[in-house]
Nucleic acid binder design. Sequence first.
DNA 1: GTGCACCAAACTGTATACAGCTTATTATTC
DNA 2: GAATAATAAGCTGTATACAGTTTGGTGCAC
Lengths: 232, 232
Amino acid sequence: MAKQESNVDRIYNACRQMAANFEFKPDERINESSLATKLEASRTPVREALNRLVAEGFLTFQNGRGFFCRSLSPNRIMDLYEARVAIECEALRRCVERATDDEIALLVSYLDASEPHYQTCDDPMELLGMDEKFHMDLARLSQNSELVLMLNNLNDRIRYVRLVDLKSLRSSAPIVASEAAQLSAHRIILAAVERRDGDAAVAAMRSHIERRREEATDAVRIAYSQLYVPSD
Amino acid sequence: MAKQESNVDRIYNACRQMAANFEFKPDERINESSLATKLEASRTPVREALNRLVAEGFLTFQNGRGFFCRSLSPNRIMDLYEARVAIECEALRRCVERATDDEIALLVSYLDASEPHYQTCDDPMELLGMDEKFHMDLARLSQNSELVLMLNNLNDRIRYVRLVDLKSLRSSAPIVASEAAQLSAHRIILAAVERRDGDAAVAAMRSHIERRREEATDAVRIAYSQLYVPSD
DNA sequence: GTGCACCAAACTGTATACAGCTTATTATTC
DNA sequence: GAATAATAAGCTGTATACAGTTTGGTGCAC
């Protein structure tokens, strides 16, 4: 019962990660043969994986010309942030209705535990990981797997820009200020959930995400410069 | 510049429609060879199309066993309805912010034009088509293509059950009552949009969709009986 | 008759071949 | 020298072949 991860899954996961990290550059054409060689497989399973990624919004496809990386534009990213608002706020509403006190308490203790790390951690990737985990755990309490899947997809498509955004925040503002604000936003949301105050929770969540959305245009600009400069 | 629709697109569209209509029965295993023969193609492009449908939630995939139709369960359908609430309400908020008066007026006149049909039309498919068109047109006014795509996907996955639900409503209640209520819900939503009253619009939309969600369990039960009975 | 082992048929997973289209390069004309 | 046409190279789209796995059926033991 161990052999679950199939070859096409392996290829799919590898490509998904590459696409998420913009290892394929925006609008870049993807060469199936070289990708297949790199992943030590033939073109057939590679194409299957790429087709899934098209349906998930990571790639695009043009008949006769093949697969391309999705483009990276402020508008597109803002759309994704708005979709996040939609999904997370609805999930939150259902969470307030359905989550048990125990489940909420568990999330509170996670927040308690991760709070110190927020202050000391200087790896943006890890910070983002903690942030995403909180949001995903919260969404799971909605008991709606569709919303969870959608949020997971959105997170993966938006991550690169969020990471860039986080880095630029950290360089421009004191760590304590920006991250403490982030953290307290989570506390405010969760406190409202504990009170079973759906409206307050949703309002807090909305403004929490919206704040980041407004930075999207700048973040995309920075992202572009990062993508086309050899290294940092 | 005419030849845009590729072969795999044709196959994809055909399979998507079959999956949406549950021409593949719930949890049924899909035979690639016979499907390929039926669509007059080889297995390769068929598998590519099926992979896209997996990513879109129409099918599932098990390593070594191939593709299966998604299962049909009340919980799953209720999840989809909730996701619809999430997407449509957020789209509506953005629509209230962004739609021009002209765009809204256009939708009002569509509603005026379709109102008579609501009363006279006795084809559930056509009724559902008009309903979906209204919702999609409204969503498009959000100017958020991501939300539009998501809603389109949800509509296609939920359609079969909605159709069954609509048929059963029509047989149990007088046409005028149930459909007039449906129609007036659209009017109420749109009137709130005209007043630029986002909260009222969202509240109306939420209860409009929620009402149908509550019928999901029954509708799925009826759907099953329809699927496994030769004809009506 | 039930459970288990074995076998055969059927189906999936992937490599490969090749036709047709797209893109890049070179040659040609003005 | 720039624009365009012709040509070559490369890449995509799909059929096909075959290996490996799953599934269904048969016979045997109990």
